[in-house]
Design a protein around this nucleic acid. Structure first.
Lengths: 218, 218
DNA sequence: AGATATCCTGAATGAGTGTTCAGGATGATC
DNA sequence: GATCATCCTGAACACTCATTCAGGATATCT
């Protein structure tokens, strides 16, 4: 029957979650290279020692934090997806969600951090591969559905999925680096236009109709 | 009239160049996060103190190393380009070279390192922006030439250049992470196919004719 | 109440690493 | 041939930071 003081308040599980959330925040803001165990602890309102107590090591905490983010993303994806919708609509929703948050991980900046870490670390590479495969799989099934429904036309679906996934990665880099030319909204627009081109759909079917204000008059 | 011993052999300039080259090697292999001044010194066959003597600081040495790589890339680009060739051929050459080595920097892995550093560091961001702009400019001028020649057709060249540049970045990530599905050759193929689609050119005009062995066999 | 396990912390500890420093070698200059 | 500037090095130095540790609190159990 707890009536906790304000300083040692929540139960351990809550504390763990807070640390993970704090780790995600710090990681997003400072990247792997700049994340100190003291930062995570401070952001979570605890001591560095507690981080080690719960996760054994800083890397352990960061790894588990990434895992939690992946779970959250796919939960959100599942929650937002309407399985009864047509492939065109599902593709549009998928593109919009991913352009906003990044595929398989909470933010594009995090995702990029994982890439670079994967260049030199086997475990990160495995994670990156798994997330990438899962993401392409998601994309692929929408494309296949569209082909089945007859609304998409595409000579080489495998190549198309590769290109669309890669295009999104590349666009995301521009957005993450705050290229003034490419906002998140513009990214969505560019990506959906490419998808329309690849899949033989009129661009107007994928792009939200009214929002063409910025582009070239015609 | 030097008859140098073998231990303190070359002149200072040569020593500087060696250190820069060593810095590029180490950086490519281990990334920013893993590059120690001792590694650079060892790879250059000198002492850590000399690196500081010449460049003031480790970061200074790495920055100058990146600059040297950019110069080398554009020199190679200029050397390989035939200004008299048509836009189609120049686009093909550009795509092939960039897919092999990365745009504006020696290797894709290095390029990715710069991205991630740019997420948190203003100076790296400036570098990344400058290289990106220069690269898109290069691409853009080929596209414009093709439009002028009448061999390309493309409703929105700005968007197309953005997409093609981003697609290359994204594909490069796959290659750099050694995705078994995407080799450098496959990357070139995918990119040129997308370029053909974007620019209204028959894919066969951009792809080397005989090399279609891998695709669609199944 | 006493004993015990869990959760937590402040203060060391110690490894790793960029940079400084005092001086050694080499070649140019007077 | 003495002086001097340049180039270079090994050995300290100073500092950051993940991790350890001894013990304090709190709750549960007997």
């Amino acid at each position: 029957m707890p009536a906790r003081s304000s300083l040692a308040p929540k139960d351990p599980e809550e504390r763990r979650r807070r640390i993970l959330a704090a780790a995600v925040d710090v990681l997003t803001e400072k990247g792997f290279a700049g994340t100190r165990i003291a930062d995570v602890a401070a952001a979570a309102g605890t001591s560095p020692a507690l981080v080690v107590y719960h996760f054994g090591t800083l890397d352990g905490a960061l790894a588990e934090a990434l895992g939690s983010v992946e779970d959250a993303f796919y939960a959100e994806l599942a929650a937002g997806a309407d399985p009864d919708a047509g492939a065109v609509e599902r593709l549009r929703a998928l593109g919009a969600l991913a352009c906003e948050t990044g595929p398989a991980i909470g933010s594009w900046a995090l995702w990029m951090e994982v890439w670079v870490r994967a260049l030199h670390d086997g475990q990160a590479r495995a994670l990156s591969r798994a997330l990438d495969a899962r993401w392409k799989q998601t994309l692929r099934s929408v494309v296949d559905d569209g082909l089945w429904e007859g609304v998409f036309a595409c000579p080489d679906p495998g190549a198309t999925v590769n290109r669309l996934a890669s295009l999104m990665d590349g666009l995301a880099v521009q957005v993450a680096l705050r290229d003034p030319e490419i906002s998140a909204a513009r990214m969505t627009e560019l990506w959906l236009t490419a998808a329309a081109l690849e899949l033989g759909v009129p661009a107007t079917d994928l792009l939200p109709p009214a929002s063409t204000g910025r582009r070239r008059k015609r």
